[in-house]
């Protein structure tokens, strides 16, 4: 599990909310440049945090239900879920080092 997994409206509950380990959801869309630039950073982090945090991505264009439920109005938007609840949210493009701080905080 080194690459972020695609999740959608249908699989969100099972893959994200019912996960035993924390799950990061990358809310993104193809029109968003910073989202595309964040993707390789998240791929690297997915490798570094393998087995600790599951990395997923959800296209807000295709999956309006989940995007609306979590009130997504700005992307890139990363939400980390722990035991089915959002515990951390990062809005906007952030460099890798800063993201690591947020990830480590969730794991503490």
């Amino acid at each position: 599990m080194s690459k972020p997994i695609e999740v959608d409206d249908a699989s969100f509950e099972q893959k994200v909310l019912e996960s035993k380990i924390p799950v990061l959801v990358d809310f993104w869309a193809p029109w968003c440049r910073p989202c595309l630039m964040a993707a390789p950073v998240l791929e690297e982090l997915a490798k570094e945090y393998a087995d600790k945090i599951t990395f997923t991505k959800l296209d807000v264009d295709q999956n309006a239900k989940v995007a609306a439920k979590y009130n997504i109005m700005a992307i890139p938007n990363l939400i980390i879920f722990k035991e089915g609840k959002p515990v951390s949210q990062i809005v906007g493009y952030k460099p890798k080092e800063e993201l690591k701080k947020d990830l480590d905080a969730v794991l503490k």
Partner: peptide
């Protein structure tokens, strides 16, 4: 309210409005 209607990138977030 950043990410909840406050935005710094129109090319990213315009379609939400």
């Amino acid at each position: 309210l950043t990410g909840k209607g406050v935005s710094y990138c129109a090319t990213c977030d315009a379609p939400f409005f």
